[in-house]
Design a protein around this nucleic acid. Structure first.
Length: 269
DNA sequence: CTTGTCACCTGAGCGC
DNA sequence: TGCGCTCAGGTGACAA
């Protein structure tokens, strides 16, 4: 579910709601998600003040003086901030209760997400991550240089978090469509001119999705539990056999690396 | 090193 | 209603 815009949407919500708040209690409603949740968090974070909320790729970073709480939403995770007396929902796995009576809850049905902790600001999962797509260093030259001699498909290339973080299945499909690039093209054969288009379209697609509050297909909700509205702006994702908005041809669905790819065979070459 | 596949897990939707 | 099947926003670990 959550790609970069969804994580950014969650981050922005948390910035408003939990920065400056003091942790009253930490609840681990189960001991693991994708990995074990550090059991010491209830003592480590007690009485700690949230000093900031950040994001690296699709990782949410909740900053304390004693370290950083690292949260990943996996495929089906979402975060809500509610009053602490609100009843727990099914799949609420982790909870930070604050002294102001609010509670931040991580809900994740499929449990591909993660809750981790770093005392020194570094973590193996955050090492070796590629550039942020909305930063200036992510440009045509970067992708062009990185892709030379690569034989894998352009779609897999831009979804590789060691190249650029935060571009998931939806936005990869959408950005390639807007750039009129066939998702199957070998990354190493894509011209710099095409990469110019592609980097611009990745940036604009992600930015617009952030403004719309992310894409809600099934699980994702914003901090207040309401859905994002970017789904109504999708050109190809989930539109198999529907007419292309540009040429009226049929949107096609193929499988690449066991992930669905949607594209227009007429427009994308 | 590069590329592709599997695994992790629950739930929705569909055909029968 | 219910069963069995397919599919779903991610990504680390491993195989070839």
């Amino acid at each position: 579910m959550p790609e970069l815009p969804e994580v950014e949407t969650s981050k922005n919500g948390l910035l408003l709601l939990i920065v400056g708040q003091v942790v009253d209690a930490v609840y681990l409603w189960r001991d693991n998600l994708r990995w074990a949740i550090p059991t010491h968090l209830n003592t480590t974070l007690a009485r700690q003040v949230v000093c900031g909320v950040g994001r690296r790729g699709k990782y949410l970073l909740i900053e304390f003086e004693v370290g950083i709480l690292i949260i990943h939403l996996g495929m089906s995770g979402s975060i809500r901030v509610v009053n602490r007396n609100v009843e727990l929902q099914k799949h609420d796995h982790f909870e930070l209760v604050f002294e102001n009576g609010k509670s931040m809850r991580l809900n994740d049905p499929r449990r591909f997400g993660a809750v981790l902790f770093s005392t020194n600001g570094i973590h193996p999962l955050l090492d070796n991550l590629g550039v942020e797509p909305l930063e200036d260093e992510f440009d045509a030259n970067y992708l062009y240089t990185k892709s030379r001699k690569k034989h894998l498909a352009i779609k897999a290339f831009i979804m590789n978090s060691k190249v650029v973080v935060g571009v998931g299945n939806i936005y990869a499909c959408e950005s390639l469509f807007k750039s009129r690039i066939d998702p199957r093209r070998p990354a190493g054969k894509v011209t710099k001119k095409c990469y110019q288009l592609l980097t611009q379209n990745i940036k604009s697609t992600l930015s617009e999705a952030i403004l719309a509050g992310g894409t809600t297909l099934q699980d994702f909700t914003k901090i207040d539990g309401t859905p994002g509205y970017f789904a109504q702006d999708l050109y190809v994702y989930g539109r198999e056999n529907k007419p292309c908005f540009i040429c009226n041809g049929k949107i096609t669905r193929i499988t690449q690396n066991q992930r669905a790819t949607f594209y227009c065979p007429q427009c994308q070459i």
